[in-house]
Nucleic acid binder design. Sequence first.
DNA 1: TCAAAAGTGTTTCTCGTACACCCATGT
DNA 2: ACATGGGTGTACGAGAAACACTTTTGA
Lengths: 243, 243
Amino acid sequence: MAAKRHRDAAFLAKYRPDAYPRPSVAVDVVVLTVKDGQLRVLLVQRGEPPFKGSWALPGGFLRVGPSAKDQGEDLDAAAARELEEETALTRAQVYLDQLGAFGVAGRDPRMRVISVAYYALVRPDLLPLVSAGGDAAHVRWSAVDGLRELAFDHDEIVRAAVARVRAELERSDIAQNLVPETFTIPELRAVHEAVTGRKLDSGNFRRKFNRLLEDGVIERAPGKRATASKPAAVYRFRPPSPA
Amino acid sequence: MAAKRHRDAAFLAKYRPDAYPRPSVAVDVVVLTVKDGQLRVLLVQRGEPPFKGSWALPGGFLRVGPSAKDQGEDLDAAAARELEEETALTRAQVYLDQLGAFGVAGRDPRMRVISVAYYALVRPDLLPLVSAGGDAAHVRWSAVDGLRELAFDHDEIVRAAVARVRAELERSDIAQNLVPETFTIPELRAVHEAVTGRKLDSGNFRRKFNRLLEDGVIERAPGKRATASKPAAVYRFRPPSPA
DNA sequence: TCAAAAGTGTTTCTCGTACACCCATGT
DNA sequence: ACATGGGTGTACGAGAAACACTTTTGA
């Protein structure tokens, strides 16, 4: 054991990273929205091997600069770029955050690839912009449950993203990135129901909502909205105050 | 905008990842423990440029195989290896989980490096094994607050790890990775206090502890422990039942 | 007028927080 | 004997959950 440690230390001292093979680094984005009362993920059909014809997450390789001075784009920028290429949505329009790195050896049959996954939340009123992007035939909003046969380990990445969003929903205000600018209480509730997959008591949800109102997180917006029955009051998330 | 998208699409179609520069991928480990009532992180002093002489997280480059068939070690394995090289602690002895990827361009002056950060929790009774590892002169357990002048962006990584552990502590049982096999209620409370940085009410903590007892997460261990005052009962986390 | 969904009220339980207090022990 | 810290009891408030009920509308 001590001998092994010694070998490792010796190895490290001599280790010259530029003399050894490097992995490729990809950035994949789990683009999520709520559509038809369901949490859905944006998938694109691959036109190239490997996994040609399979559905996969939008993504691509990180662009690395040629020199120490020009090291290329940031990871965040790469995620925003991939998002914009596939959906015509800019970073300012969506919530975008890193999920983690997925790098099991063999996950890409061509070569070693480390994928840094991001997740994005798209408000449903922006959905038309997405379709306007590329060719709709190879893009699809798929329900997040029971996904199979995705390229690479992308189903695992989607599962991780969904778990993350569910956890985040309970502790923060990310729900605002899944409703239009203005919304009614039942609409916000529908988002929570879609994400968690559970029916919520309307009365209890209203009380929680009222706490957000009192705390100033949410404010009344002008007007009412016609619904299937009684019209509902319209609200908006209060924009972050310019400190 | 549409024109830009088109250029990007054309670029992508022709993009041959192996023809473009790749980043190096490093794995850094935030090794945490509770020592002297404080949450502390393991730092090593760099013996090589860049940042020679500065304190940094233990870490190193991911070993990538030479071919599509042999793609090298998994990210998790690399983290476990780095941990063992620096501390002589094996993966089975500590809690080890991924934190995320840190890849801002320019974070390493030599070349583009994406660092996949992990965090590890070390029980204090294993601390002697750590010092037994490398040369103690270049290893240090530093308090996590107010860290400055770390190499690269390692202070940012430590901050992220601490935030993660604090959040995790409230929702899971990771505290068990920061106490010895058997422990008293006040000892576990001291861990919570060290991690959160707040004094906790001993009575309230005891009630929360009792819930864990009732839920079978924790069980009584034989014996008592002598303390500065009244001896305290000894407990242990119940090992996960072999399903 | 009837169903659907908005909106209100009430009750119960759990949990976090604050705080007063008793008890066993080492010094 | 007394300070220290283990261990117990109580009380309040916030919030989750379950559920009964009224009100307003479109069909």
